[in-house]
C-alpha cells in the first residue's frame, strides 16, 4: 500500500488498487472522496474556500482551491479514468468551525453549504458525512475497496459509512 498525500487546495485521483489517498488536518476546509466501485477509480479533493468568484484567476490556475470549481474538476478527472457519474459513491468530511462562531469566521459552514448546494443541483447523493464540530480531521480513501476513513484525536480512525 502506498499513501498519496493530498495537500491544501489539492486533489489526487487513482485507479491503482495499492493506493491510499490521504489528506491531513482538515479544519474548516472540506475533503471530498468519490469512488466508482466497478472500475475501482477514486479521488480525493481538499478544497479551502466556497466560491471561485473570490478570485477567478486563482481558480483558473488551481480549481481545487474552491468548492464550485474543485468538485467538478475532481469528477471530470475520474471520468477520464473510466468512472461514471451514476456509479459514484460520494463521502465528505471537514468543515469544522471555531467556537461561538461569528459570521465573519463561518468558512467551515460556508464550505459545507456550497458543496451540498452543488451536489443537490447535480442530483448527487452524499453517502457518508462527518462535517462540522470543532475537530481536526484526517481523511482517506482506499482505492482497492473505496472505503473512506476519518481520523480524529478523540475517536481514532473510523470508517465513514
Amino acid at each position: 500500500m502506498s499513501e498519496i498525500i493530498v495537500g491544501i487546495s489539492d486533489f489526487k485521483v487513482s485507479n491503482n488498487i495499492n493506493d491510499i489517498l490521504i489528506t491531513y488536518a482538515l479544519g474548516s476546509c472540506v475533503g471530498v472522496t468519490i469512488y466508482d466501485p466497478v472500475v475501482k477509480v477514486g479521488g480525493l479533493l481538499h478544497f479551502m474556500l466556497p466560491e471561485s468568484s473570490l478570485d477567478m484567476r486563482k481558480a483558473g490556475e488551481n480549481p481545487a482551491m474552491f468548492a464550485d470549481t474543485g468538485i467538478p474538476f475532481l469528477f471530470k478527472t475520474c471520468y477520464e479514468l473510466g468512472a461514471k457519474k451514476k456509479r459514484m459513491i460520494v463521502k465528505v468530511a471537514g468543515g469544522a468551525s471555531i467556537l461561538d462562531d461569528a459570521n465573519f469566521f463561518r468558512i467551515g459552514q460556508k464550505n459545507v453549504t456550497a458543496m451540498k448546494k452543488l451536489f443537490w443541483k447535480n442530483n448527487v447523493l452524499i453517502e457518508g458525512e462527518d462535517t462540522g464540530s470543532n475537530c481536526n480531521r484526517t481523511f482517506s480513501i482506499h482505492i482497492s475497496t473505496g472505503q473512506a476513513f476519518v481520523r480524529t484525536a478523540h475517536n481514532g480512525t473510523r470508517e465513514l459509512v
Partner: peptide, 18 residues
Amino acid sequence: IMMGIGLGSDGLAYKGLS
C-alpha cells in the same frame, strides 16, 4: 487554525471573537 496549518489535537476549539 481554520486552514489546518499545523493543526493539532486541540483542533478549532477556541473562542471566536466577532
